[in-house]
Each structure stands twice: as C-alpha cells, then as structure tokens.
C-alpha cells in the first residue's frame, strides 16, 4: 500500500504553508525520516496532512504526538479500564503498550500499518517491536537525532518563516 501526497502548495495554518516539490510516496515496508529545523513544518505535516489521509483508510494507524502528555493520560485511562486492566506509569510503558497493541491486532488480522512518530524518546524501541512482527508497516519518523538506518530522508527546508519546501533529496 502506498500513501501519495501530490505536488502542490498545502495551506497548513492561516499563516503557514508547505510546498510539496515533487509527489511524495510513502510505502509500507519502508521507513521515512522527516528532517528539518524547529518550526519547519514536520509536526504539521504529520498531523494536518498525513493523519487525515490515514484516518480515512483501512490501514492500521499509530500516531505518537510530540509532547504527548495529553495522549499519555488518554492511553493510561484506556489501559486501566480494558481487560485485563494495566496500570501504565511512564511514557515508555505507554509507548510499549501501543506498540504491543498494534502487533496483537496485526497478528489477528494482518493488513498495512502506518506508524507516525513525532520526536519520541522511545522511537527506537517502538520501531523494534513493530518491525519484527508487522512487515507491512510504513514508519514515518520526525526526529533531530540522526537518520534511522535504511530510512528515506524527507527534508523540510524553510523558504520563509511562513513557508517550507518539502522534498526527498536525490541520493547523490
């Protein structure tokens, strides 16, 4: 399965837009690394462009927000009332819970999965859990801490404070 974002200007907020220089394709079984300076639009691309597309698809979707404290409380509450109830105390436990939940559902009913991770300190562990068990997964990772091995780079380059260009640099 491939998620395609066509070339064009995307108005993300009233005062911020992203210019998609060439068609972007995100394929299951591959990893993509969103790289760019603070404020270049990586998080907005995840939440305002990719997420709406994926919420309307039949694929599994796991999205870890940046500064995920609100999400954290929601998952802790969810885990506490499910059977068997689990008490999740730390962010790492929440991330592992979500990863294991995806693996469990994938194994019951395999279908493509998209995992969007925005600046999580536990990205490597999560990718490890899921990639071992869910081969039809596309990882899209925003991070300032080095490119994951084998990942395709997606660059966010500010043109002005209100506009960034999004592109996949050529390998050379």
């Amino acid at each position: 399965m491939t998620l395609s974002i066509p070339t064009g200007e995307l108005q993300i907020w009233n005062n911020f837009s992203l210019w998609i220089e060439h068609d972007l394709e995100f394929e299951t079984g591959k990893t993509y690394h969103l790289q760019g300076n603070n404020g270049s639009g990586k998080s907005s691309f995840l939440s305002r462009v990719l997420l709406p597309h994926l919420q309307n698809s039949s694929s599994y979707l796991l999205y870890l927000q940046q500064q995920m404290h609100t999400q954290l409380y929601a998952v802790q509450a969810y885990a506490a009332v499910m059977k068997p109830p689990q008490i999740l105390k730390t962010e790492q436990e929440v991330v592992n819970y979500l990863g294991n939940d995806l693996v469990r559902n994938y194994q019951l009913s395999p279908r493509p999965a998209f995992v969007l991770v925005d600046e999580s300190r536990f990205e490597a562990e999560l990718v490890g859990i899921i990639s071992l068990n869910c081969p039809l997964t596309c990882f899209i990772l925003a991070s300032h801490h080095g490119q994951p091995s084998g990942a395709t780079l997606v660059r966010f380059e500010p043109v002005t404070p209100n506009r960034s260009k999004v592109c996949i640099p050529s390998p050379n």
């Binding site: 907020w13 005062n15 300076n37 603070n38 404020g39 270049s40 639009g41 998080s43 907005s44 940046q66 500064q67 925005d118 600046e119």
Partner: peptide, 10 residues
Amino acid sequence: TTLSGGQKVL
C-alpha cells in the same frame, strides 16, 4: 498554541 514543539520548548 500555534508554535512548533521546539519553539514551545525555547
């Protein structure tokens, strides 16, 4: 709330 995550930290 319209700031990016990194800008909020700064």
